[in-house]
Design a binder for these strands. Structure first.
Lengths: 348, 348
DNA sequence: TTGTACGCGTTATCAT
DNA sequence: ATGATAACGCGTACAA
């Protein structure tokens, strides 16, 4: 015989069997009482007492094996320290926690292979679903998402025909809001500090900027356009390059980190903001309000996108057969001191 | 008979049985091959082929039930959006991920009951361990941690005799570094904007401030001390109250968020930084370098504390019998523009 | 080397 | 209402 011990926990912690034995009932009755199902008053009393005495706590893993649910939801983003993703994560965690579930976070470093590997790992079902916000969505991403046995929700742009739940914003239009505002307040030589053009956000913002200028009959001046990374240091460097060769009366930045870098470049170079140069960022993170002067910024609803994505995911977990859904969060411009019209008008 | 189906997965996804049947071997052989244990070349070939054909992926939950390990590690902090915790979380995630595990995050809102409830939930073993950074450690915290079947590591102050792994810094000394620096650069009327005194960090910083002043023979002036919350808005309001009734030549803030608020209050009030008032924050978050002027700040090694805590936890998971350990991360002052000595000396 | 069978801890089904 | 037992999917001790 193999059975050295039968239902006697190896580490001394009580199981249903422990409780059942102590209460003098079957494990079935014990389980029923512990799950609030029907039983006689006497049985209920005995089981409750036994459970309390031994300090019984149900094992989450065993329960998961039975229920085929882990109660976990994953979030995969490039960098969990980036203010945009922090805002998303915060909102997602709130929704997930309020549903009694928990959030598993992954930092992908924007590395495509790690992202797809993560998606493929969903096949082992360590979570009930995943929210992913990739910089770029490849075919590998798509097939991995479609083959996943647990639902995936994408925050960001996605092919129209992709059968995947999706929450997106329209950063192109968002750039337009900023340009319109700057033009309306008398700015004409509008500079643009963008992120890499081979990313989805970078490309969309570039297109939006040129389209918006065209809408006002302004010819784009390539000397007023500079590209760096979506980071503070890169933004500052890019702004410095731009300022060294041109004299904009406004600077639009592809995100708030870049805008903060640009602010440094401007102030260090002796430019007054907004008097000499108006400054507008994007993402409208907490950072924008913390700067002096406070930064105008185009909100792309990061928190709202996170919230909506979490809700979509929870719905689909509950109802897997739902058709793919696509939600839009519109951009909105928050005007603050950094781009307020100045009495004397911009430096001429 | 009950057995409608025997080892035939309900959702159509392959299990070891599927693979074994297809390869014409027993599940034991299949399992062995899939886990890289010994088997004949022929068996290996057949099993590998069968697994590939049906797209077999091991089920994480079943594996956990067997191994008594989830491969998950939890982190519980007040607010996953606070720059300090973001820095910690980033470092922790990196360590955890590099060990092949995953990170579950919890936002406690600084709510004591939720924190202790979270610790008690460890009894159901949904994770292999937890890192927690409580604002305050109650007896409830301690008993919950001690009774937990999985290891807990605390980032922050803890009773000396608490048998719990612990990583801490010395913010009291940290405050001293800042005061020393300010005094050495000619400041005498040093103001202090602190967080709530009934929190561990708030109390430590208050004590440190008074002790440091005493060390320089300076009498603490209560009008130069103000208390708010550890947040931007509260910090700004607190600084405004202080500036309305006193004229400090330096301002020390209990964290960087407060310091940013104070910077706003100073600049909005027409004070020059550092010329009129030197400014020093604490935590040395990324925020400090993003401000203009860049903020001096006392580093309390948030990322380093996170990294060390994660390593302690992983070690203890591997070796549960280890004696409790206590690690210290020393504070360090980063001097930047906001507190650099000014040629003319501070306004007199 | 290979197969049989048990155990992980829980819930659910069936028969009593 | 209660108890015996299958089942979730995996790993492995033991016997062959």
């Amino acid at each position: 015989m193999v059975r050295k011990r039968l239902h006697d926990p190896v580490d001394g912690r009580p199981t249903v069997h422990t409780v059942a034995a102590r209460a003098g009932v079957s494990i079935a009755s014990a389980s029923r009482v512990l799950n609030g199902l029907g039983a006689s008053d006497e049985t209920i009393r005995k089981v409750r007492a036994a459970a309390a005495e031994v300090g019984y706590v149900p094992n989450a893993i065993a329960r998961s094996l039975q229920s085929q649910r882990t109660g976990l939801v994953a979030l995969a983003v490039e960098d969990i320290g980036n203010p945009v993703y922090v805002a998303m994560m915060r909102a997602i965690e709130a929704v997930v926690a309020s549903s009694g579930r928990q959030l598993v976070v992954h930092a992908t470093g924007g590395h495509i292979p790690s992202e797809t590997a993560l998606l493929r790992r969903l096949a082992n079902r360590y979570v009930d679903g995943m929210i992913v916000s990739p910089i770029r969505v490849t075919n590998d991403h798509l097939t991995a998402m479609i083959e996943s046995p647990v639902p995936v929700v994408v925050i960001g742009q996605l092919r129209e025909d992709a059968p995947v739940d999706n929450v997106r914003t329209d950063s192109r239009t968002g750039v337009g809001l900023a340009v319109d505002h700057l033009v309306a307040t008398g700015r004409r030589r509008i500079g643009f500090v963008n992120g890499p053009l081979d990313t989805v956000p970078g490309a969309a913002r570039d297109a939006g900027f040129r389209a918006a200028l065209a809408g006002h009959g302004i010819e784009p001046d390539e000397r007023l356009i500079e590209v760096g990374d979506f980071q503070y240091a890169a933004g500052r460097a890019a702004a410095e390059r731009l300022l060294a060769r041109a004299t904009p009366d406004a600077l639009l930045c592809a995100n708030d980190l870049i805008a903060v870098g640009a602010l440094h470049a401007l102030l260090a170079g002796g430019r007054r903001v907004p008097h000499d140069v108006a400054l507008v960022g994007m993402d409208d993170t907490e950072l924008a309000q913390m700067m002096f002067p406070q930064l105008s910024s185009v909100s792309l609803g990061s928190a709202e996108r996170g919230r909506r994505a979490a809700e979509l995911l929870l719905q689909r977990i509950a109802e897997p057969a739902l058709p793919p859904r696509r939600e839009h969060v519109p951009p909105a411009l928050s005007v603050r001191a950094s781009s307020e019209p100045v009495a004397a008008g911009p430096a001429a």
